[in-house]
Computed example of a mutant assay.
Amino acid sequence: MLEASAQWGQLITILIMAVALGLDAFSLGIGIGMKGIRLLHVLRMSILIAIFHVLMPLVGFYAGEYFSSLLGQVTSYVAGGLLLLLGAHMIFNAFRSGETSFMDHRTFTGTLMFAFSVSIDSFSVGVTLGMFRTDLWLTLFAFGLCGFLMSVVGLLIGRRVNRNLGEYGEAVGGAILLAFGLLFIL
């Protein structure tokens, strides 16, 4: 019974983290969608985001396993610190003013850069999860699916709503990662 409870706890944690990471794609997708985007570009961009939301934590996961073997008992503090830094960074970026767009989302290169930029935080979380030996395939599936679905929803909503909603989504994702960082440290 205790083992089943631990498995449910791990599943819930992975899903919450997947949603938190997907909020970045959601919030930035709203901004892109507000600039005007065709449905074909929504699909293309969301598929690339899903791919990066799988690849980045995969690389991070193996890096985390390596660091875990090096760090030993300090692992949970390092992992918690990484999540704290990542969460704080997401919150800071959410409220940073004067952000300029340096890429055209309609080009393949622009779409690739956008997908990479919203997935880079998945690498850090992958490092953290690699330190704790979570279920790799479940994690990758959840991250990829949430990244895809939340980017589709963000891009489609962006076609219809105002610009202020986007920054709050990234801030909420950052707050969730901050909370998990504190849980790992305490």
Rank of each mutant, 00 (worst) to 15 (best):
Thr109Trp: 08
Leu28Ala: 14
Leu70Tyr: 05
Phe143Gln: 03
His105Trp: 08
Phe92Leu: 13
Glu99Ser: 13
Gly33Met: 01
Glu3Pro: 04
Met34Ala: 13
Gly174Pro: 04
Phe61Arg: 01
Met34Leu: 14
Leu21His: 04
Leu48Thr: 09
Leu40Tyr: 09
Ile120Phe: 13
Leu85Glu: 06
Gly144Asn: 03
Val153Lys: 00
Gly110Arg: 04
Leu11Pro: 01
Phe116Ser: 08
Leu82Gln: 05
Phe102His: 14
Thr134Tyr: 12
Leu129Gly: 08
Leu178His: 02
Asp24Trp: 08
Ile157Trp: 09
Ala175His: 05
Leu55Phe: 11
Leu11Arg: 10
Gly72Leu: 04
Ala175Trp: 06
Val153Cys: 06
Met45Trp: 01
Arg163Phe: 08
Ala94Phe: 06
Ile91Trp: 09
Ser46His: 06
Ser46Cys: 04
Thr134Glu: 10
Ala179Ile: 14
Pro57Val: 06
Thr13Asp: 06
Phe95Tyr: 15
Met103Leu: 15
Arg38Val: 03
Leu83Ser: 08
Gly72Arg: 01
Ser124Arg: 00
Ala25His: 07
Ala79Phe: 04
Arg159Tyr: 04
Asn162Ser: 14
Phe143Ser: 06
Gly166Asp: 03
His89Ile: 07
Glu167Arg: 14
Gly147Ile: 02
Ala20Trp: 12
Val161Cys: 13
Thr134Trp: 08
His89Val: 10
Tyr62Glu: 04
Leu28Gly: 15
Leu48Asn: 08
Phe114Pro: 05
Ser151Val: 02
Asn93Val: 05
Leu145Thr: 12
Ser68Ala: 15
Met56Glu: 03
Gly169Phe: 14
Leu165His: 07
Leu140Ala: 08
Val74Pro: 00
Leu21Val: 02
Asp121Lys: 00
Leu55Asp: 05
Asn164Val: 13
Leu136Val: 12
Met131Ile: 06
Leu40His: 10
Leu21Arg: 00
Leu85Lys: 06
